[in-house]
Design a protein around this nucleic acid. Structure first.
Lengths: 211, 211
DNA sequence: ACTCAGATGAGACCCAGTGTCACACGCACC
DNA sequence: GGTGCGTGTGACACTGGGTCTCATCTGAGT
């Protein structure tokens, strides 16, 4: 049934294939199809709620001290799931790249993971900007994961696991900026209100910086 | 027409209202509705492609030296758009919070902005991990923006503008971790208050910095 | 053989979205 | 005042995803 669907999507595209065609090839009825998958899209995105609850279980074992390893391992579960699916993940990737509706669907599920992380991180973090920092860190973890996952899906890497670890290093390196709150930024923000032409002001500022 | 739609969504929910009911109340035909909006969802998310092209125009005036201000101002355009919409934005927020399909739709458009940022940032950044860093920074900017926007939509703040600036400070503080060692960067961000459009000023400053 | 439960099939139905055709309106041009 | 023309609008048929109901089948337990 899933095979019939993917085969047809591959032959004639996602939008062009109707559920009718799928069930005809699979030798079942329309009723059975919708009972089994709920929707046409769900043929492509299987069991992602089950993965989500496994991630929740993993996150539940963490705490403020083990924050990083808990989140990273939970994110790693997503990567492993895709890698374990192998060719199926590649077929899905081809579809999500070309069909906007499917791309949006996948993005939505990624945001679901991000919300999982965010809620946990927020409970574990204690800085003044815990809300913002939890959200940023969750987004960074998911983004880092996605970069590596996409590289693997494109065939740009054979070793997504170590790339993932490196990406997580980059992600958590960023958070150091929050720990030592006193480090001065090397970026200067200059707000100038004057009646001189703005390009002249910009030139003067630049000269001053060079000087 | 938009008013009729929002009123009905408010009265009986999004899924429960049919396009038929909307056009009946608005006194037009079904044809006109779909010609004007294209879909039922598009009544709620208007003109976001126009905003996107305005952002592209703003980003096009930036460069490696004015990376931060370009991206921040482009993100700020989204915030300003929502704030300018006022009550309409609040109504939309109520819908996107409750109707999954609409939530996903909004997320997808946010990811669209993120991709805009990512592509630009990647062209401007030159570190070894430019791909990853561009993606992370784009995600962080969008996430920071979203945190502030949601706070405003929930009524948690009356001054989203300064909260946005603070959030962007947090976001770009993170990127310090990527800078090599302690060599001070010569990056200058110049904000010039004038009555010229910000895109124009940014371009002029950029030119001046290029020397 | 009997029964009950769960899976399947058949078909009616709703609604979003597309496409086509016809009609009305405003507007230049003759 | 007609005549052509583009545009916006309505009417309507049609496709296709998704829901619901009811009938049928199958298989395990007694």
């Amino acid at each position: 049934m899933v095979e019939a669907a993917f085969a047809l999507f591959d032959e004639q595209g996602y939008d062009a294939t109707t559920v009718e065609q799928i069930v005809e090839r699979a030798g079942v009825s329309r009723s059975t199809f919708f009972r089994a998958f709920g929707s046409k899209e769900d043929v492509i995105f299987p069991r992602h709620d089950e993965l989500q609850s496994r991630m929740e279980a993993r996150l539940a074992t963490g705490g403020p001290a083990t924050l990083r390893v808990a989140v990273v391992e939970a994110a790693r579960m997503v990567l492993d799931q895709y890698v374990a699916e192998g060719p199926l993940a590649l077929s899905r990737y081809r579809l999500t790249r070309t069909v906007p509706a499917l791309r949006d669907r996948e993005i939505a599920s990624m945001i679901g993971y991000q919300r999982l992380f965010r809620d946990r991180l927020r409970a574990w973090m204690s800085s003044a900007d815990a809300d913002l920092h939890a959200e940023l860190l969750a987004a960074a973890v998911v983004t880092g994961h996605n970069v590596v996952l996409r590289r693997w899906l494109r065939g740009a890497t054979d070793d997504p696991a170590t790339e993932f670890d490196d990406a997580m290093d980059s992600v958590f390196a960023m958070t150091r900026a929050w720990d030592d709150g006193g480090a001065p930024s090397r970026t200067a923000v200059v707000v100038v209100a004057s009646d001189r032409p703005s390009e002249e002001v910009a030139a003067l500022v630049e000269d001053a910086l060079r000087g």
